[in-house]
Amino acid sequence: MSDEIALEGFEPADLDGHTIDELSDYLEAGCLPFDPSIESSPGCQIAMAALIRLRGVSLSLLETEAIDEPARDDSWVAGILNRIGFEAQAGRSIPVSHPSAQAFLTLTEGAVRGLIRAAGDSVTGVLIGRCRLQGDVTVPGEPITVLVDASVFWGESIPEAAARVREAIYAELLKHTELTIAAIDVVIHDVHLSRSLGEDAAEEIE
């Protein structure tokens, strides 16, 4: 490893006085500002093409290696899942009423979000994403708006699915909590259910 390795075809003499490192920086800057002495030099163009190829192979290397990775057995995944706790996602404490002054009864916000997810998922063709309880859930009687992100599978009617999601969530919240539900907003964000994120076909219903 030495600075002195000569790279045939990529030395300043071949690059009209430029260095490979300058060209790398130029590429990184998006070839801006435009440099006529680089752009008009065939040597520089060849070298930049080589740099771009190298970068491309570097990027695809990991993806290829990830595919080649020996499949991890379930104990590896279990090793991770065994070490995570509920606390980070427990959220706020939602009071449950009781006549006794010694009683401090609560549902965690995390438990209620889990309930909402399960209710929404029970609707055919729907997968619930993130959900939010808007309003001060720690105060009894406070009006709460439920915001739910959902994916609807192709072939299902979006407004119908959203209506059924709302009904299912409302029924469960009524059964298990004492929350005062002001509204349930369902945002359908992706009807493809594909792994690519790309286009966000958001459609707000309510």
Binding site: R113, G129, D190, L193, R195
Partner: peptide, 14 residues
């Protein structure tokens, strides 16, 4: 098979 937004949203919720 769900997209990242769904998966990440759910995981963030616990």
């Amino acid at each position: 098979q769900a997209d990242d937004r769904t998966i990440v949203g759910r995981a963030a919720d616990g």
